[in-house]
Amino acid sequence: MEASALQFFIVSVFAAGFGIAISAFGGSIGMGISIRSAVEGIARNPESSGKVTVTMLIGLALIESLTIYTLVVALILIYAHPQASAIAALFGAGH
């Protein structure tokens, strides 16, 4: 019982860490692409810099929100899993 609950906790921490790493990887690639396009657009047409900057900021906020989903899911997995006790009991019953 004790060992399987500990195993469940270890798996949760591993999943949280790898989830943050993968989502930060994808999000940073997307942010890089969008910022590159915005900078190219401003360099070609400097008068449109205000509108391009604001639109880019909204897009960056959307990409950032996807990464924050992963952050919240990771925090839930580590600190406040809603069915943690039930899953630990299931592990204990299986062994």
């Binding site: 900057t53 604001v54 900021l57 909204i58 960056l60 906020a61 959307l62 990409i63 950032e64 929100s65 996807l66 924050i68 989903y69 952050l71 919240v72």
Partner: peptide, 21 residues
């Protein structure tokens, strides 16, 4: 004005994610 916009839009992503949760 640019500082104001930066602060507002940087809080946008957090509020979108948090309202779903």
């Amino acid at each position: 004005r640019s500082i104001r916009e930066l602060a507002y839009y940087s809080s946008l992503g957090l509020s979108v994610a948090l309202s779903i949760f």
